[in-house]
Design a protein around this nucleic acid. Structure first.
Lengths: 147, 147
DNA sequence: CCCCTGGGTCTTGTTTTAAGACTGATGAGT
DNA sequence: ACTCATCAGTCTTAAAACAAGACCCAGGGG
């Protein structure tokens, strides 16, 4: 299977990976969630090849994850902001970060903590069930065919 | 930045992506969560190049996400099973699947549903706070430096 | 006029990937 | 014994993606 065929799979994971599954995209989104918005800033912070950054940003705009907003005229310059669809990726990013925290942080703890403003505490993301609200264990989930 | 430098970043997202951030790994793990365990089955289901599959499986074993278990002698043959560290990736996979469901499923609904056995309902994963238990909105999270 | 900034494009050489043929150990059928 | 099949890989070749950095263009400032 080639990479560009992935988006035509019916599996939702495959379709999600067609958008965010390459080597750079989630790192670009990490920066976006940290409020980085401009080409030069992404490039400098990530050390990504400029051509690749151009492609990824254009792809994310085409996929509706980012949108390009002019922040000045003459010369017109654009910045990249997360759309609502992009914000919906936050659980993915946080789940990855917390997996990294759990398995790779040293004794001094994770490099970045996340405070839940509405309750005031630092937290980890917990996978919970939209139906009963309880935490979900992987062994307690049964996939079955849908639509 | 080159790919092999990613694992030496201090960012937990970067470290997580050094393990699961390439084009195939999460698809391999999807199959693993569906209880696929053998080389030929992964290969046939994913249509992945055999050389790449060999590399990815070896990498995941080296990273402690899968372990190689002999399932017969003469000839000795191995299968690949998720470790606890691998099972910990389930929230990541489910978050991606549900993002795909939310943004790419057709009117007939998502192709795969997930039943929470302990409550009996199909569910979506909800990002919730380990401190207060409530659902977390991305705009309600403040990252700050940790250890 | 010259240099600076921001957001790219182009070129070149290296790495990764796709596709599929081939290998090696062993068991099953005749 | 001979042939075929299974499983888990390895090898080869050509195409695609990537890294690094030079270059380009539209203004603005001195």
């Amino acid at each position: 299977m080639r990479w560009d065929e992935l988006s035509s799979e019916k599996c939702s994971l495959a379709r999600a990976l067609a958008v965010v599954g390459d080597r750079w995209t989630l790192l670009i989104l990490r920066e976006a969630f940290l409020r980085v918005r401009r080409f030069e800033d992404f490039q400098a912070r990530l050390g990504i090849a400029r051509r690749v950054l151009t492609e990824r940003l254009a792809g994310l705009v085409a996929d509706g994850v980012l949108r390009k907003v002019a922040y000045q005229e003459r010369p017109t310059r654009y910045e990249y902001r997360l759309t609502d669809k992009g914000l919906d990726l936050y659980p993915v990013v946080l789940a990855l970060v917390h997996w990294g925290d759990a398995h790779y942080a040293g004794p001094e703890g994770p490099p970045v903590l996340h405070r839940h403003k509405s309750c005031g505490h630092d937290f980890r993301s917990v996978l919970s069930c939209s139906a009963c609200g309880g935490a979900v264990d992987p062994r307690d989930v049964e996939p079955h065919p849908g639509g």
